[in-house]
Structures are given as C-alpha cells and as structure tokens.
Amino acid sequence: MNRILASVALAATLATPATAHFQLIYAPDPNMAAPVDQPLKLIFWHPMENGHAMDMGAPTEFFYVFKGDKVDLSPSLTPITFKGTDNEAAAYEGVLPVKRNGDYIVGLVPAPYYEGSEDIYIQQITKAFFNKGGLPTGWNEPLGLPTEIVPLNKPTNVIAGSTFSGQLLSDGQPVAGAEIEIEYIAAEPDMETNAVGEATVKPMPAGAIVAITDANGIFTFGIPRAGHWGFAALGSGPVKEHEGKELSQDAVIWIKAYDLK
C-alpha cells in the first residue's frame, strides 16, 4: 500500500475515536531554574472531565532524552494510588534528575490497557517536556517512537492566546488526515497526596475537541487559556493487535501554556 492510500486508511480508522482516555506525565511546572530531582506522576485518566481514572500496568519503557542521550528512568518508578473525584486507580511516580541546562524530553510506553466496554487494548505512548535554564537543546527532535507527536512550538513556553502546532509521525513518517483529540487538565493532581484538586473548567458540551492533520501530518490549535494541554492521535501507531484483540496504539504529548503578565 502506498503512503497516500495508507494515510486514507488510517484516517478512516481514526474517524471514530475509540476512547477519551489520556495518559499523563505530570508535574506542576515544566521549567526549572536550579538542579532538582523532579517527581513525575504517571496517571491514566479523564482529566478534562475530572472523571474516571484507570489502573495502569507497569510501564514497558520510561526514560528521558537530553541532548540526544537516552537515560532509563524505570528504576525510579514507584506504584502509587491516584485518588480521582469518582474512584481510585493504580498509577506510578517516577523521578526526573534535572542537572544541566537544556531540554529534557520524557517518554513513556505504558503496558496496553484493556478497555472492557469496547473489547480493545489501548496503549498511549506519551511524551512530556521539561527545561532548565531556558536553553533549547532539542525539544523539536523526534525520539524514534513507534508513533509520536513532534512539537513545532517550544512546548515549555507556550503563550495562552497563541497557537500550538505539532507533527504526527507513525514509523517516522508523517500521517495525513488523522484526528488529534485535545484535552485540558481541568483539576490538577496534588503532588503530595496524589489526589485530584479543584476543577477550574467544565467539560465541553459537545464532547472531545478535535483537530485534523494536513498532508504533512501537521495540526494547529489555538490555546485559549493557561494550563496543561494534551494532544492525542488515536490509533496512529503501527501495531494494531495485542493478545488477539484490537490495539489502539496512540501518540500523546503534553505542553504547558502561560499567561503573559
């Protein structure tokens, strides 16, 4: 199948989103001024709805990339219980050692999650971005993941009221015509208690916010307010089956937007 036909087929697959779940790699602020061992919360949740949380299995990969060097963070993982508004769920905490100035791109490949209501597995391959000292050192470089979204705006310094663009890749190639589901963390988790905080916005009345990638796999979204924004391409990965059932292998990234003051 040529790339054009492959893109059309993938777009048809993504036309009906399988789920509104979002994998998080969360810390309150991605920008650091001094060296720190930064705790990170890995939570599988419905953050814009401040809704149901799902149990995570042990991640298959958890790492960061700094100036092209990949460092395994798996030894830092600790199981935690995330306390959502409606339920509790198994989650994880990891630690990102931030020492030198530059960009730290954190990657997570979670174990596939079985969604019984749809009889499918979901695997959200997720990236988040952190920086020390304001020095850019590679935030726009792909990590070579099976599927990923590469930011085209500096993801740790987005201005509320501006736009954010990203490029969706699958097996390193741009994906045209794909749906990008967009999410906002309405109630940020408390880093000490692992419990959800107060909601600052209500869920959208018409369901998911969606953008579509162009012929080069690029999408753009206007950022209406400060906070943590997530972008997910459902089913964009090359692996389509797990343990004999359909697998939605998704690409997810998180960015932080700020108000000008």
Rank of each mutant, 00 (worst) to 15 (best):
A9G: 10
A11H: 03
T13K: 08
A27F: 02
N31T: 00
N31S: 00
K41T: 06
K41S: 11
H46L: 11
H46K: 08
M48E: 13
E49R: 12
G57C: 05
K67P: 00
D72P: 04
S74F: 13
F82G: 08
G84W: 01
D86H: 08
A90M: 06
A90C: 03
Y92L: 07
V98S: 05
L108I: 11
V109N: 05
D119V: 14
Y121C: 14
Q123R: 15
T126N: 09
T126K: 09
K127W: 14
F129N: 11
G133T: 03
G134E: 06
P136Q: 07
W139L: 03
N140R: 02
N140Q: 10
E141G: 01
T147H: 00
V150E: 01
P151S: 12
G161L: 15
F164G: 01
I180C: 06
D190E: 04
A195N: 06
V196M: 13
G197L: 10
A199F: 10
P203H: 10
M204E: 14
A208W: 06
V210F: 04
G222E: 14
I223C: 13
A226G: 12
F231D: 02
L234M: 12
S236I: 08
K240Y: 05
H242S: 04
G244K: 03
G244Q: 02
S248T: 11
Q249S: 13
V252P: 07
K256F: 03
